[in-house]
Amino acid sequence: MAAEALGWWGVPLGIMAGTLRGSAPFLFVSLGECLTEKSGKINLGLEGTLLTGAMSAYAVSYQLKDVVGPGLSPWIGVLVAGIAGMALGFIHAWLSQQPKVNDIAVGIAMIIFGSGIAFFFGKPFIKPQAPQLLTFDLGNWSSLPQVQSALKISPLFLLGLIIAPAMAWFFKSTRWGLFIRAVGDSPDAALAMGVSIKKVRMLCIIAGSFLAGIGGACLSLYYPGLWSETISSGQGLMAVALVIFARWNPIQCLWASLFFGGAQAIGPALQSVGIDQGRYLFNAAPYVLTLLIMIITCSPKKTLSGAPGALGTIN
C-alpha cells in the first residue's frame, strides 16, 4: 500500500523512475543502430525488429515457463528475441547490399515485415501472462514505497549501461572497431586495407539487430511487461533518430536514451499532481527539445560531425 502522497516530489521521482524503467528499449535499439550506421548502412527496420523481439521473448517466456521454470524462461526469451532480431538483421543485410538497392527502402519494408511477423505469430500471446524478468531491488534502504518501486532496476538496463561505454571503447581502441569505422567512413580505403566491406556490414547489421531484439525483450518482459500490438508505439523509429541526435557516439546514445525514456514520464507525472494545462505539449516535449537541439547544433557550414562518410551511399 502506498503510504502517503509525495506531492510535488512525485514529479522528479516519477521522471527519474520513468527514466530507469522506460529507457532500456531506446538504449538497446539506438546502440544497435549506432553499430549498424558506423559501418555505413542504415537499418530503419529496427522498429520491426523491436516488435519481433518483444513478441518472441514474451512467447518463449510463456511457453517455456513449465519446462524450465519461471525463473529461467524469461532469460531464454531474451536470447530468442536477440536471435529473432539477428534473423531479421540478416535479411536486411543481405537485401540492402545487393547492387543498386537503397537501404532506406529496404528498411521501410523491414518495418512492415517485422511488425507483420510479430502480429501474426503474436496473436495467441496477447492474453496469457508470461513470467517476467527478475529485477534488482536497489531501493530497500528507503522507507518510502514510491522510492522502492522506482529503484526496481532491470538487469537488462544495467547490461545496456555497460554496453554503451564498451562499444565506445570498441570503436576507439580495437582493431575490429577500426575496420568498422573504416568501412563506414571510407569503403575504398577499407577495401585497400583488405577488409571485406560486405562481411563487416553484414556482421554489424546482424549484431545491431541482435541488440534491438533484446530491446524488444525489455518491453515485453520488464516494462510495461506484456505483449500487445501497440507495445512499441514508434519507439524503434525514435531510437533510430536518436542515433543522429547522439552524433553516432555510443555514450551520447546512452544520454539520449535516458532523456527520451524519462520524457515519456513527464506528462503522466505532471498530471498526477494536477497540472493538466498543456498536457499535449508535455507529451510532445521530447520532440520539441530534439528539434531545438538539432537546430542549435546544426551549422550550414559543415556536415554533421561524426556522421560516417559512406552513410546513405549506394553500393
Partner: peptide
C-alpha cells in the same frame, strides 16, 4: 492504446497515494 504511457500513468498515480 499506449502501453508505456498507461503503465507510467498508473505508477504516477500510485506514487501520489
Amino acid at each position: 492504446s499506449l502501453p508505456v504511457k498507461e503503465a507510467e500513468a498508473t505508477n504516477s498515480l500510485v506514487d501520489q497515494g
